[in-house]
Design a protein around this nucleic acid. Structure first.
Lengths: 175, 175
DNA sequence: ACCAGACTCGCCGTTTTCGGACATCAATGC
DNA sequence: GCATTGATGTCCGAAAACGGCGAGTCTGGT
């Protein structure tokens, strides 16, 4: 049956809404956006606790304050071999940069697996920390984000030092 | 990914061949027949140990010596809800008795789920202890057994006090 | 000419769906 | 006798559908 190992969760307010954090003893497993796309209820056997998330909380707060460009956290995302390959490649996109899905496909040596990369991106269990928001359409359009396009736009604006007030007024095209 | 909880295994010689025993901390999980149908190699992360199987070993030895008619062991079989229902019902078939797949289906209040019962029976992870060998065709034929029909015949003969020598000469029809 | 959209088609991993096969058995029609 | 059929849950394989794409074509408006 499923694992007996304990799973922890907690919530964290942020400029882009409440974040639900999930972790096990070996690292951070998931981050959900409140009202995000794959929103689901915490599993009944999970336990709420703040202690496992002290590091995560601090680094995310620093990130949103514009004071952190890189995360140093134990991560433990779950997925297929292909998905993990894509997700770890995300971590290598520099802060503030953007690449296209096609380029990302090339970087994992599967230049034709473009749609598959898109699908894997769409299931990134650790948004923000694994910066899937830095991947955009080859024509510069944002095309999609689990936490909603405004959030994607906000994160990119944040990383480019743009003033925060214009959550809905950015110059970045939505399409 | 999967559980971190330790899994133990060991082997036990018996009149019907070597038995592979698998257990976790909450009870016996599996018994395989050497050369049985769903024969598989022990998982690489399992650890071999004798201590968890002291009780199991003694009770099985007593059973094969004809000195035990009922097992008193912590069991922890894994399966679907339906399968567990079938398997626990097996434990209520008296020593030496036989019933048909149809009767077994009735006892779990699903008189039509006869084939499903057959399939569940075929996946009994704890043969001998959960006596699937006591389930036979409605016409008295043995019809099938994970450890081979001769073994099924042997177990039934043992439980009926028949002399052991005739492993292949029993009067019980094979079909 | 040029450009923005709308449309088509090929690409690929994952998910979903579907169809059989099973350690059955009783009823039916021939 | 004997083949057929229907009822049940699960597993397994195959097949199809489905995406946070992208390059190419076509169309219509300037």
């Amino acid at each position: 049956m499923s694992s007996n190992e304990p799973i922890w969760y907690d919530e964290l307010p942020s400029p882009v809404g409440i974040l639900r954090l999930v972790a096990d003893d070996s690292g951070l497993r998931e981050i959900w956006f409140e009202n995000g796309r794959h929103q689901k209820a915490p599993h009944s056997q999970w336990r709420r606790a703040a202690a496992p998330f002290v590091l995560v909380r601090r680094q995310l707060e620093e990130y949103f304050a514009g004071e952190r460009q890189q995360f140093e956290l134990p991560l433990h995302p779950h997925g297929t071999a292909f998905q993990l390959k894509v997700w770890w490649e995300l971590a290598r996109i520099p802060y503030g940069a953007t690449i296209s899905y096609g380029q990302l496909a090339q970087r994992i040596d599967q230049p034709l697996a473009v749609r598959a990369v898109g699908a894997a991106n769409g299931r990134n269990p650790l948004p923000i920390v694994l910066p899937c928001h830095r991947v955009i359409g080859s024509d510069g359009s944002l095309t999609g984000f689990g936490g909603g396009l405004p959030t994607k736009r906000y994160l990119l604006a944040l990383e480019n030092g743009v003033a925060h007030g214009d959550l809905f007024g950015s110059a970045l095209r939505t399409r």
